[in-house]
Design a protein around this nucleic acid. Structure first.
Lengths: 184, 184
DNA sequence: ATATCTAGTGGACAGTGTCCACATTGTTAT
DNA sequence: ATAACAATGTGGACACTGTCCACTAGATAT
């Protein structure tokens, strides 16, 4: 995690990890089949950290469940937390989505410890609060996730990474209003 | 490019490239400062190939410039071409966005050979055709790009990579309708 | 014809993932 | 209590990578 936080998935190198722990390189092979398995576990840990930050963002919003305004603010908090995590921890964020080929993604299940799960819960609450038409609800989690994720990627490591802070803020704001437009 | 196409940015390894060309590894250093510079050039080439496919998709749509229906179909063609390139050439697609830290992104300028440039042109045509309110036009290229890019990433290398073909098709369709909703 | 410039060669080094055989434990079974 | 065992770690090795250095053959320019 230390290495991933500092330099992304490519920086999690087996020998360096064992050096930090204070053992000889081969000792790692008692715990992981190979480097990819080690990386895979760092990835799910990073994904969990992302989910935890999102959950913290949600918890910070006051208001009873089902309250329309609160439900909307909670959805906004999710997106904001996602984007802030990507900005504050670019290494971990990149690592969370760098799961090696043949390893499973823990993020797909709709548990409460995954981004998708949290997003779905927030959308369900929007329906419950009467803000979102149940007709529109079905499957809308994917474009919303894509939109926020795309923004994070393009402005983080991607082509928009050199944009000024002001520009970034404007882009993020537009992202969130675009979501609002898609929900109405 | 051969290596990137087959295995993404990590697969473009200097020694293997020189082996393909038929020279000794060190010969590469007469043309590139280091491996990152080589990779950077492969990245911009991949980005250009993406832009070319998008341009081809646009060209395939008949209809005069300024015609509302044609303008809308052109925008759709852009998104579809982007997503199809990501699916058909996952290696090149990943490489296009894997530009090393200290190297410039050729994709940022609004030329006609970049994804952003093509997207902006299509949006301008929408305004010209009277389909898109000029008020809404400003800066809307970013959320749209993010949405399509996010979909490509999540369904390609990301958490949604194991989704069935049918599911993928549904997700992509929802992405495009979500854009339409954001434009209205 | 001589000097310079370009692309390539050969040899080396440190760093990486991974394999093998072996040593040291702490736990369990008899 | 002792013997078998599983877990963890060690040491040495190998192929592969990016990169540095000194050197060379051919083309070009003066």
């Amino acid at each position: 995690m230390e290495l991933a936080r500092a330099g992304g998935p490519d920086a999690v190198v087996l020998r360096e990890a064992t050096r930090i722990v204070g053992v000889v390189p081969n000792a790692a092979y008692r715990h992981f089949a190979d480097r990819d398995e080690l990386l895979a576990e760092v990835c799910t840990a990073a994904m969990h950290e992302l989910a935890d930050r999102m959950a913290a963002g949600i918890a910070r919003v006051r208001g009873k469940r089902g309250n329309p305004a609160a439900a909307q603010r909670r959805l906004g908090a999710i997106g904001a937390a996602y984007l802030e995590f990507a900005r504050a921890e670019p290494g971990l964020f990149a690592t969370a989505f760098a799961v090696p080929r043949q390893h499973e993604y823990a993020a797909r299940d709709t548990t409460d410890r995954t981004p998708l799960g949290l997003l779905c819960a927030a959308l369900d609450e929007l329906v419950e609060a009467g803000v979102l038409d149940p007709q529109r609800r079905e499957g809308i989690e994917y474009p919303i996730w894509s939109l926020v994720h795309g923004t994070a990627v393009l402005t983080g490591r991607g082509p928009l990474r050199d944009a000024s802070d002001a520009e970034l803020r404007r882009i993020e704001a537009r992202t969130l209003t675009f979501i609002a437009a898609g929900l109405a």
